[in-house]
Simulated assay, not measured.
Amino acid sequence: MSDIRVKICGLRTADDIETAAKAGAAYVGFVFFAKSPRHVSLEDAAELAALAPMGVCKVALTVNASNSELDAITAAVPLDMLQLHGSESPERVTEIKARYGLPVMKAIGIADEADLPQIDIYSAVADQLLIDAKPPKNADLPGGNGLAFDWRLLAGRKYWQRPWMLAGGLTPETVNEGIRMTGTSQVDVSSGVESAPGVKDQALIESFTRSALGKQG
């Protein structure tokens, strides 16, 4: 499983960045959403992004962000990718790609088979897809809720037009099963490596990444 790529999202400290990078994470994510316990300021995100080693993809997670908000984020923080985690339309995805010249990852919430057609729709416009558990009705957060969905819904579906990433309720104990059941080559974790909401646990980051990459010990 050495070809698996890991994204650790919602990082907020220099130790988080160092641990994720040393563990072998391919992506580090910064959350720009005020309701989230993982939210970071532009100033803090800029400092954290500067600490990420070359070759580690720096991702900004936003939720239905306006152009002015995205202007501020992209001006302040050296980024490699934008992650759209709200209800952005395919047209909005296309607009953001054109405006900022950065690859765009679109998150898609899945609860049952009726949600699957969204994957094909967004694969036509996004550079990558993040397949997450659909948040509960009236949830404050569109992701990072620690919820999983039925991975069997994705079994055998390897022919989407874009690279995709499995998210939603993954932990060091479940990530191998998620990879096995879905055939994904990329996984995303946030709450599954935390000791409290918004507080990353260094040992859990190491354990998750080790499990995902198929490393012993």
Rank of each mutant, 00 (worst) to 15 (best):
D15R: 14
L166M: 07
D3R: 15
G101Q: 04
E91N: 06
K137Y: 03
Q118P: 01
L11P: 14
G169H: 06
Q83F: 06
V31N: 08
A50F: 01
I121R: 10
D44H: 05
A26H: 14
P117L: 08
R162K: 12
E177W: 04
A50D: 08
V40A: 08
L11T: 15
K215H: 15
T184N: 05
N176Q: 12
Q186W: 11
P136Q: 09
P135R: 05
P90Y: 07
M165Q: 15
E173I: 02
P135I: 11
A203S: 12
V104R: 01
A52L: 09
A76T: 02
S36T: 11
N145Q: 15
A167H: 11
G168Q: 05
I205C: 09
A76I: 02
A25N: 13
L116N: 01
A26P: 13
D71P: 00
A133G: 11
Y122G: 02
L166N: 05
A72L: 04
F33H: 13
D115Y: 14
A75Q: 05
L166C: 03
N64L: 08
V28T: 11
S66Y: 01
A21G: 08
W160G: 06
S66C: 01
F208T: 08
E113W: 05
G29K: 13
V93F: 04
K22I: 12
L213N: 08
F30Y: 12
L129N: 05
T74R: 02
G146T: 13
Q128S: 15
V77W: 01
S123W: 09
V199C: 10
